[in-house]
Amino acid sequence: MLTIIKPGLLTTIQDLGRYGFQRYGVIVSGAMDQFAHRMANILVGNQENTPTMEITLLGPQIEFNENSLISICGGDLTPTIDGSPVRLWRSIFIKKGSKLKFGSPRSGCRAYLAVAGGISVEAVMASGSTYLRAAIGGYHGRALKEGDKIRVGMPGSLSTKIIESLSDSLSRQPFAEMDWSIAKDLILSTPTEPSVRIIRGREFNLFTKESREILYKEHFQVTPQSDRMGYRLKGLSLELQKAEEILSEAVTFGTIQVPSDGNPIILMADRQTTGGYPKIGQVAKVDLPLVAQVKPGDFIKFTEVSLYDAQLLLIKKEKKIQQLKSGISLKFR
């Protein structure tokens, strides 16, 4: 069990999303940075889709009411255990009674806390993700509050072996860190002005020539009106050649829509299922974690990638993740 001493700015339970119900208007939700979510689970021996805690900018204070194997991946929100800094992207064994606390954000926007055995919540429509607007999923359909007690599942056999390898070095410390972590080349850095690869959207050619050039030449600032639903960007205005009536149709994670005010919106995890604004572009899936770590006030620069290359990059990245997974299972066999 975990006890929430302070909830932080916005701490929710998320998995890889609620799929299969978009035809009924039910949004996908799920972790904004799916790569960090998956890595956090892999490091504690969980299935990748197991619910984790998504922590936003100002993190919570959490007391561990039992010995636990955890990992924290994603943005560096300066976590400490009983006052000592702990590192990201690695397995950590934390002793019962210890307190995990997050400080001020050093880089990135969102961190994911995985616990071996998984954060245990009741699945709603086959997912543990929190859908705030409809108040379903996650922990009672809401963000975590002070005093919440979060249940943890039973660690599986891989988790148990990772715990065994760490418990020897525990001694009198409140926690023990693994002496290896996720390789640097697999982790995306989290710059405040990231270059994000995008594929042309379905209505790309309906925009003026100037707007199409602006899209790849200028920086766009992430405004404070940005959240899990979408990032509202501000920059030079993007204009259609002529007013067009576009019928609502499906949108996905990373679709870049342009409403009539000319400011693009990147649709994120809590996006609606359909949209009626022209789609100028689409963030390549492989770069979505980069966008998920951008904070309001930061700038984004878009670069063009072909659909072909975007899928190639995705396949390569996936291969590396699979190699890492089999590496870990071999190590603890």
């Binding site: 035809r23 149709e249 499906a250 396949i315």
Partner: peptide, 23 residues
């Protein structure tokens, strides 16, 4: 196929680009 989303004049198929059946 992950799921489909019907609309006025379209039906969109969400797929898993790293599904073993496509590789």
């Amino acid at each position: 196929m992950v799921e489909y989303i019907p609309a006025f004049t379209t039906i969109t198929i969400i797929y898993d680009p790293v599904s073993p059946s496509l590789l």
